[in-house]
C-alpha cells in the first residue's frame, strides 16, 4: 500500500479526494434529498441531524442483531420516518414553530441514540458490501477509490426520479402547491396537512438511511462522534441547490470533496492544520450560503411557505 502510494506520488491526493468525495457525499446526498422533499412541502426540519444519528444507531444495532445490514437499512428508514412523523405532528399544532421543534428533535434524537446505542460501541456489526468498480486496476488506491457503496447509485437514481416526479406526477405538483401556498392548496381541495406529514416522514426516512450509511459503510462503526453536523449541513445544501434534486447531487459531491480533503491530506502525510482542513465543509457551507442568499429578494425557487427564507 505504501509503495503504491509512493509510486502514485502526489496523485494519491486527488484520487483519494475523488474516492472520498463519493464516500463522504453519500449521506449528504440522501439527507439533502429528504430535506428537499420536506421543504418542498413548506416545512423545514432542522432535526435531521438527530434523526440521522438515530438512524445510524438503529441500523448498526439491527445489523448486529440480525447479521444483515440490509435489514438495518430498512429499520433506519422506519425510525427516521417515525421521527419525521413526530416533527410533522408537533408542527401541526397551532403556534408551534417548525425551526424550534427541529432543534428540539435534534437534541432528543441525539440523546436517545447515545443512550440506546451505548452497548453497540464495542461490537463489530456486518457492514454493507461495496460495489467494486475498480477491479480492472492493479493499483490498490485506484481500487479503493472506485469501490462504490450501493447507496450512492441509489441516491443518484432517487435524485433523477425526484427531479422528474416534482414536475410530472400529480403528487409532485400537489406537493409544490402545498409548499408554495397552503391557502391555494386548500382551495384546490388538496389535503395540506397530510401532504406535509408525508413529506416530513419521507425526509426523516432518507435521513435515517443517511445515518445508516455512516454506521454501516463509512466509517462503518457506531460511536458518539459519528456525525459531525452532516444533517444540518444538508439543510444548507438544499438552499444552495435551490430546491432542485439534481443540483442536490452536485452540491453533495462538492461537499463530499471538501470533507474528503482533510483525511486525504492526512493520509499523504500532511498533518499540520488537520483540524482546519476538517472544518473545510463548514466554511464551504457558510461561503456558499453567503453567496447564494440575498437580503433583497426571496430566494429563487424557494417554496413560498418556507419560514426559513422569509
Amino acid at each position: 500500500m505504501n509503495e503504491t502510494a509512493q509510486t502514485l506520488g502526489l496523485w494519491s491526493i486527488p484520487l483519494a479526494v475523488i474516492g472520498g468525495a463519493i464516500r463522504v457525499s453519500t449521506p449528504f446526498l440522501l439527507v439533502s434529498l429528504g430535506e428537499c422533499i420536506t421543504e418542498k412541502s413548506g416545512r423545514i426540519n432542522l432535526g435531521l441531524e438527530g434523526i440521522l444519528v438515530m438512524g445510524a444507531m438503529a441500523a448498526y444495532g439491527t445489523s448486529l442483531a440480525t447479521g444483515s445490514p440490509w435489514i438495518g437499512l430498512w429499520v433506519a428508514a422506519l425510525v427516521g420516518a417515525a421521527f419525521g412523523l413526530l416533527h410533522a405532528a408537533l408542527c401541526s399544532l397551532k403556534k408551534v414553530n417548525d425551526i424550534a421543534i427541529g432543534i428540539a428533535i435534534m437534541m432528543f434524537g441525539t440523546g436517545l441514540a447515545f443512550f440506546l446505542g451505548k452497548p453497540y460501541i464495542q461490537p463489530k456489526a456486518p457492514n454493507l458490501p461495496a460495489i467494486e468498480l475498480g477491479a480492472w486496476s492493479d493499483s490498490p488506491p485506484v481500487q479503493a477509490a472506485l469501490a462504490i457503496n450501493p447507496l450512492f447509485p441509489a441516491g443518484i437514481a432517487l435524485a433523477i426520479f425526484l427531479h422528474w416526479a416534482f414536475r410530472n406526477t400529480a403528487w409532485g405538483l400537489k406537493l409544490r402547491v402545498v409548499g408554495d401556498s397552503g391557502d391555494a392548496a386548500l382551495a384546490l381541495g388538496i389535503r395540506v396537512l397530510r401532504m406535509r406529514v408525508v413529506a416530513t416522514m419521507l425526509g426523516g426516512a432518507l435521513s435515517g438511511l443517511g445515518g445508516a450509511f455512516l454506521s454501516l459503510y463509512y466509517p462503518g462503526s457506531w460511536n458518539e462522534a459519528l456525525s459531525s453536523g452532516q444533517g444540518l449541513m444538508a439543510v444548507a445544501l438544499v438552499i444552495f441547490a435551490r430546491w432542485e434534486p439534481i443540483r442536490c447531487l452536485w452540491a453533495a459531491l462538492l461537499f463530499g470533496g471538501a470533507g474528503a480533503l482533510g483525511p486525504a491530506l492526512q493520509a499523504a502525510g500532511i498533518s499540520s492544520g488537520y483540524h482546519l482542513f476538517n472544518a473545510a465543509p463548514y466554511v464551504l457551507t457558510l461561503v456558499i450560503l453567503i453567496a447564494s442568499c440575498s437580503p433583497k429578494r426571496s430566494l429563487q425557487g424557494a417554496p413560498g411557505e418556507l419560514s426559513l427564507t422569509r
Binding site: 444540518l232 449541513m233 450560503l289 427564507t309
Partner: peptide, 11 residues
C-alpha cells in the same frame, strides 16, 4: 446577506 442565522450560527 439574508443568511439564516440558525444555520450560520451552528456552522
Amino acid at each position: 446577506r439574508g443568511v439564516n442565522e440558525t444555520i450560520s450560527s451552528l456552522l
